[in-house]
Design a protein around this nucleic acid. Sequence first.
DNA 1: TCCTTTGCAAGACAACTGTAACAAAAAGAA
DNA 2: TTCTTTTTGTTACAGTTGTCTTGCAAAGGA
Lengths: 215, 215
Amino acid sequence: MPRLVDHNERRRQICDVLLDIVSEAGIAAATIREVADRSGWSTGVIGHYFNNRQDLLLGGLRRAAEILAEHNTRVLKTLEGIAALEQILEGSIPLDKRRLALCRIFFFFYAEGMTEEELRQELESYLLGWRKSVTRAIRDAQAQGDLPAELDPKRIAADLVGLADGLSIHSLLDPRVMAQLREHSPVRFWIRRLAAGLPAGEAVEPAQAKNYAVV
Amino acid sequence: MPRLVDHNERRRQICDVLLDIVSEAGIAAATIREVADRSGWSTGVIGHYFNNRQDLLLGGLRRAAEILAEHNTRVLKTLEGIAALEQILEGSIPLDKRRLALCRIFFFFYAEGMTEEELRQELESYLLGWRKSVTRAIRDAQAQGDLPAELDPKRIAADLVGLADGLSIHSLLDPRVMAQLREHSPVRFWIRRLAAGLPAGEAVEPAQAKNYAVV
DNA sequence: TCCTTTGCAAGACAACTGTAACAAAAAGAA
DNA sequence: TTCTTTTTGTTACAGTTGTCTTGCAAAGGA
């Protein structure tokens, strides 16, 4: 066999270029020719590693989801309870360049997922995974006595995840919301509201995530 | 002068057709030809009442925003305090066909607004108006003693609005979230959490909105 | 009646898209 | 070297899109 190329690696490289474009200019701007130009390869190469443009988009979304999922599992390994809860929820809030790019990517795909069933399914499983991580952190916190035991972890998880995503997208559209988001952390605010009546846990300074994939 | 046509009325009709298409198939599918075919007019007519496709999209967004804004002001006239608060927040949660259509429209425009500055500005002012309505309802509730006076109305408004929108978009992508949303009302849950410590206000059954514009 | 202005339809045009077919190149195997 | 297979580049093609121009119909004013 001649010329050896790691297909998965090459696909990953192409997906990264795709995600760059999506993050900057949206999915509509992510044409095959644009991906080809930016990557330095020709359009034929894109066709060689992906069946379709649709296939390429799906690959990009999978890659983005993978990055956030890895972040979450890593957080759950290093932290626990309320600290982990806050870290996971703030992992997708656009407070720095990296998270801003990720946010934009996901919100573009959210819209696309409302018309493309394949993308929707991928987003569904991504959201499910996110909620599961949050649910686990909530259970931890309950076990430690940092959150009331009578709360339904799954419900609270869905709500907190919705809050984080909703404020994120609003902040991308309205600089006022962005400013507010930078000043106070709504995630911590509402978690403390949940913990009301219990001895307030000490505020944990979020360990800055550094070595996670940069998109 | 010959042939009299109410330009604003005609523009509104065309925008409604546009919103239909956007709601069903997204903004990318809302081509000028498609709008022309659906409306029964020719593409020339679209060009006669709108300068651009961009202009047409902006018109559609303005129309959608107008519908929700009217809803909010109407609620504020008929209800007050926590009842108004809940009504306004649930006005854009996809619990029936009408609100589902509105939700889809807005989330498509959210994505579009991240790349088109004109649309973004319109969305920004729409979000601001929404928060203002919620803020007013919160102040009412505080005045009535239904919510703690030490809460910052603006902050809480931004958070609640973010929660509503975030859960809405998640429910459009994940049927599990949708089911959860139908079972319990997260909006009421968190508002009651806010009111914790105060005498719980009686649950108000939301008056079904009927005579609001159907998109 | 004729004329002018507006509403509307139809088509032309250039630009851009996804896709596929074909050719060239590259590199290990014989 | 020569052959074979994979990778890559180039090109063509059909379909869509936004935009603009042109022409016709309609209706009120003179």
